[in-house]
Design a protein around this nucleic acid. Structure first.
Lengths: 211, 211
DNA sequence: TAGATTGTTAATCGATTAACAATC
DNA sequence: TAGATTGTTAATCGATTAACAATC
């Protein structure tokens, strides 16, 4: 399987969303200059990106067929076949993710939640049961879940990550603001708000210092 | 002001968190090989990163002083002087962010929330009042907020972004899964879960295909 | 046909990594 | 002193951009 760069992979969902909007507006085709203007990427980059996943070439003077693009991208991103995940840590953020309606259409199915707090164990959040964390080793394999979504505080994250890996998780989607150490064959993707805010703040300061 | 690359900026909060943990464990100094082993970055990169923000050099055979590093990084990241933000869209995710306890220590102070839903307007979430969205143009300047946190559905995001920019916002922290078009002098930083999931899924598929 | 857009190949750019002398 | 770690300078690598011929 060809490896795509992180930046490139991150652009595909943005394309997909944009193409769906264009279809809703009644458009049939789209060209790279048009996309470039709307999304702020360069034409060349867009062509490279779409070439990398499309089986058919684009048409000079016209561009690409939107329906085919959407189909191609949904296929490529795995939206057409569902992956199963569990979520660990039903705090504010965990709850928000359990209630996030868009995951299903992205092919991500969160089937259960886990927590250590007796007050939330047994609850149903976003339609999913909250189990005690110590049942993870037993349930994760039975649910056939490959992904564990880590939404616990930073202080507990490594411990939870270890438990998830022991239980058979092959990928961790980490929302805790710490680095997780895992075996080489386990995938970790971080959503680090502190990192994102650092980028925002730095750029904002540059803008403000221009005045 | 020197511009740092996005990747580099994103690493600093990870360093900072790690250094704080080390201090809690009673450590006084830290060397780049030690950091490299714990966080999975290369020694050289770590040295470059820390050199770029430190006023004093590291000490051969010893490394750098942890207290000074924490102070330097907090200063650099703006944790020491608070920035004001408003949040737009008090849905599940918006609520989670309003309740997120770590923003204050990062120097981000969310002072108000806005929504269009009469059912949440007037509520207090995480200690912040929820105002009707149409009061944004009036309140944003009075609150002296530079940052607007966009937590509305994708379909409403561009409209909300336009309103925030008109009202005087200089930076948008965008949690909606769409591209926002804004004037050149307005900063946008995206937290796109679809993009993050795309990276995760792709890497997971590579791992699973190795078996 | 003319012109816009395509895909390909080469050039540029920037970030990361490697090599190594300096130093506590 | 010896050895670990530093900072600097050069090499590598990969991604983005530019140039341009091909084509509908």
């Amino acid at each position: 399987m060809k490896a795509f760069s992180k930046n490139q992979l991150q652009r595909y969902p943005v394309y997909l969303k944009f193409f769906k909007t264009l279809i809703e507006e009644g458009k049939k085709d789209v060209s790279s200059p048009y996309i470039a203007k709307a999304l702020g990427y360069s034409e060349e980059q867009i062509r490279k990106d779409l070439q990398a996943v499309s089986s058919e070439p684009g048409v000079p003077k016209k561009g690409r067929d939107l329906y085919r693009l959407v189909e191609t991208l949904e296929q490529f991103l795995g939206y057409r076949d569902s992956t199963t995940a569990v979520l660990i840590g039903a705090g504010h953020l965990g709850r928000a993710l359990l209630n996030y309606p868009n995951f299903e259409e992205m092919g991500l199915s969160i089937v259960a939640a886990f927590d250590v707090d007796d007050k939330v164990i047994g609850e149903k959040i976003g339609g999913k049961d909250v189990f005690p964390l110590d049942r993870l080793p037993n349930l994760l394999p039975r649910l056939n879940a490959h992904i564990a979504i880590v939404c616990v505080p930073g202080s507990a994250a490594q411990e939870v990550a270890d438990l998830a890996v022991e239980s058979g998780a092959r990928a961790l989607w980490n929302f805790a603001p710490v680095h997780l150490s895992v075996p080489d064959d386990v995938v970790v993707e971080n959503v680090n708000l502190a990192s994102s805010l650092a980028v925002l703040s730095h750029r904002l300061n540059i803008e403000l210092s221009k005045e």
